[in-house]
Lab assay of single mutants.
Amino acid sequence: SADYSSLTVVQLKDLLTKRNLSVGGLKNELVQRLIKDDEESKGE
């Protein structure tokens, strides 16, 4: 998976916004949300 932890919070929020995901929470939560979304989209 992508190394989201190396991105800035601003970059993470931009990715979340593009996916229509919540941008609330700490950086670690944003990273986990993106990883979870990646895993769910692979399952389709």
Rank of each mutant, 00 (worst) to 15 (best):
V9K: 06
S22F: 08
S5G: 10
D38R: 04
K27F: 08
D14H: 13
S5E: 12
D38H: 04
K13I: 14
R19A: 02
T8G: 05
Q11P: 00
E39M: 13
L12C: 03
R19S: 01
N20W: 05
L34E: 01
S41R: 15
L15Q: 05
D14R: 15
Q32V: 06
T8M: 04
V9I: 13
E39I: 11
S1T: 13
S6Y: 08
S6L: 11
K27S: 04
K13G: 03
S6H: 11
G25A: 03
D37S: 11
E29Q: 08
V9H: 06
S6V: 08
S22T: 07
G24K: 15
G24H: 15
V31S: 03
L26F: 09
K18M: 10
S1N: 12
G24R: 15
K18Q: 11
K27Y: 07
D3V: 10
K18R: 11
R33I: 04
G43Q: 12
G25F: 03
Y4E: 00
K18E: 08
R19Q: 01
R19I: 02
E29P: 01
Y4G: 00
L26R: 12
V10K: 15
S6Q: 12
G24D: 15
G24Q: 15
S41K: 15
E39P: 03
L34Q: 00
E40I: 10
D3C: 15
N20L: 07
E29I: 06
S5I: 08
K36M: 10
T17D: 06
E40P: 06
S41Q: 13
S1M: 13
V10S: 14
I35L: 12
S22E: 09
S41Y: 09
L16F: 01
I35T: 07
K18H: 08
S5C: 15
G25W: 03
V31P: 02
E29A: 07
L26S: 15
L34A: 02
L21N: 01
L7Y: 07
A2S: 11
V23Y: 06
S5A: 13
D37L: 05
L7R: 03
L16T: 01
L15P: 00
S1I: 13
L7T: 01
G24W: 11
K36S: 08
E44T: 13
L12W: 00
S1H: 13
D14G: 08
R33T: 04
V9M: 12
S22A: 10
T8K: 05
S41N: 13
K42T: 09
V9Y: 08
L30C: 04
E39K: 10
L30P: 01
L26D: 15
V23R: 08
K42D: 08
D3L: 12
L26C: 09
K42G: 10
S22D: 10
L7I: 02
L15I: 09
K13A: 06
N28I: 11
N28L: 09
D3F: 15
D14K: 14
S1F: 14
L26K: 13
Q11F: 05
L12T: 00
L21C: 05
D3E: 09
L15F: 05
Q11N: 04
S6A: 10
E39V: 09
T8N: 07
D14M: 14
R19Y: 03
L30S: 01
L15M: 08
V10E: 15
Y4W: 03
D38Y: 04
S22C: 09
S1Y: 14
D14F: 14
Q11G: 04
N28G: 10
S1R: 14
N28A: 14
E39Q: 12
V31D: 01
N20A: 07
E40C: 13
K36P: 01
L21E: 02
Y4T: 00
K42A: 11
L26Y: 08
E40A: 12
K13Y: 06
K18T: 07
S6T: 10
S22R: 08
R33S: 03
S6P: 04
L7A: 03
L26A: 13
E44V: 13
L30I: 04
K42E: 09
R19W: 03
D3Q: 11
I35E: 07
L7H: 04
T8P: 05
L21H: 03
I35R: 09
Q32G: 07
E44P: 12
T17Q: 13
N28W: 15
I35S: 05
D3H: 11
K42I: 09
G43H: 13
L12R: 00
K36D: 13
V31R: 05
D14S: 12
N28V: 09
G43K: 14
K27A: 05
K36C: 08
R33H: 02
S41P: 08
Y4S: 00
Y4N: 00
V10G: 12
Q32K: 08
L21D: 01
L7V: 01
V9Q: 05
E40F: 09
S1L: 13
V31N: 01
V9N: 05
S6C: 09
L26E: 14
G43N: 12
G24M: 15
G24N: 15
K27Q: 06
V10N: 14
I35V: 09
S6I: 09
E44A: 13
K13C: 09
L12A: 00
G24E: 15
G25T: 03
L12G: 00
L15E: 08
V23G: 06
T8A: 05
S1K: 13
V10R: 14
D38P: 02
G43R: 14
S22L: 06
T8E: 05
L7G: 00
T17R: 15
S1V: 13
K13D: 02
S6R: 13
D3T: 09
L12I: 05
E40H: 11
S41V: 09
L16A: 04
Q32D: 10
G43I: 13
K18V: 07
E29L: 05
A2H: 13
V31G: 00
R19K: 04
L34P: 00
E29S: 06
V9D: 06
G43S: 11
V23L: 09
E39G: 07
E40V: 10
T8W: 02
Y4F: 03
N20V: 04
V23D: 07
A2N: 12
V9L: 12
L16Q: 01
K13W: 07
L30G: 00
L21K: 04
I35W: 06
V23E: 05
E40Y: 10
G25R: 02
K18G: 07
L21Q: 03
E40N: 12
G24S: 15
S41D: 08
